[in-house]
Computed example of a mutant assay.
Amino acid sequence: MILKHIILGFIFGISMSFISWIVGMIINSILMKTAYYKKLSNLNFIKSKSLNKNIGIKYFKWIVKNTFFKFFNQKIKLENRNTDLTVIRNEMTISEISHLIGFIFVTIFAIYKSIDVGILFGLIMMIPNVLMNLYPLLLQQENKRRIDKMMKRKTKNCS
């Protein structure tokens, strides 16, 4: 019974995480039209570089850059030094907020399933959710901080 909950919870978590990407994009496109979106675009959950390192964001970044995930969002790419950083930062914000919405969406389902099926099922559901929504969100935030530094340097050099 426990093994069944682990396997089914993991499979359900993966399925819900994929669905949450679509839900995140839809809700994000609605939120973009609100005044509240500006506040959302400057979220920063983990400011510490060492904490990002300790939770493995560096390894996650390597996985994204060197596997099929690199084909998912082609708009977030630095082609050369003349690339418009503002456009890339906006695309990162869209991705970040979509993943945040997706993470919350799956978390709500995981809480419901913890009550309905069992706590183990809900906890196992959160593993794919963390890997498919929370880590991409944190990676986008780290990348946005790097882009902000680059933009600041660029404006300093132009002055």
Rank of each mutant, 00 (worst) to 15 (best):
A110L: 11
L134G: 05
F45M: 15
F45V: 10
N66W: 10
L3I: 13
K58Q: 12
I6P: 08
F69G: 02
S15T: 11
I6F: 12
I63Y: 10
L138W: 13
P128G: 01
I104W: 03
I97L: 13
F121M: 07
G9S: 04
E142R: 10
I14D: 01
L138V: 07
F71Q: 08
H99Y: 06
N80T: 08
R145S: 12
I11N: 03
S159K: 07
M150S: 10
G122H: 09
M151R: 14
K58V: 08
M25D: 14
S48P: 12
G102F: 06
V23A: 13
L8P: 00
Q141V: 04
I55Q: 09
F45P: 03
K75E: 14
E96P: 05
I26V: 15
N28M: 10
K33M: 12
N133L: 04
S95F: 08
T83C: 06
K149A: 03
K113M: 15
F12K: 01
S98C: 09
F71H: 13
I108C: 08
M32C: 03
N90S: 10
K49W: 05
T93E: 10
Y112G: 04
M126R: 01
D84V: 06
L43R: 02
K70S: 12
K154I: 11
L131G: 14
I108H: 02
N129W: 09
I97C: 01
F109K: 02
I57R: 00
M151E: 13
I7W: 03
L31S: 05
G24Y: 01
K39S: 14
M92W: 04
N143D: 01
I115V: 12
S98V: 04
S95L: 11
I26N: 05
N54Q: 11
S95V: 06
G24I: 07
K65Y: 06
K4C: 00
S29H: 06
P128F: 03
A110H: 02
K144G: 06
L137Q: 03
K39I: 01
D84E: 12
F45T: 12
G102L: 03
S20M: 10
M150L: 15
Y135C: 06
L51W: 13
L134A: 14
L137W: 13
I76T: 14
F103N: 11
C158W: 05
N28Y: 10
L31M: 14
I57V: 15
I101G: 05
I76L: 00
F72R: 08
W62S: 10
R153T: 04
G56F: 12
N133H: 15
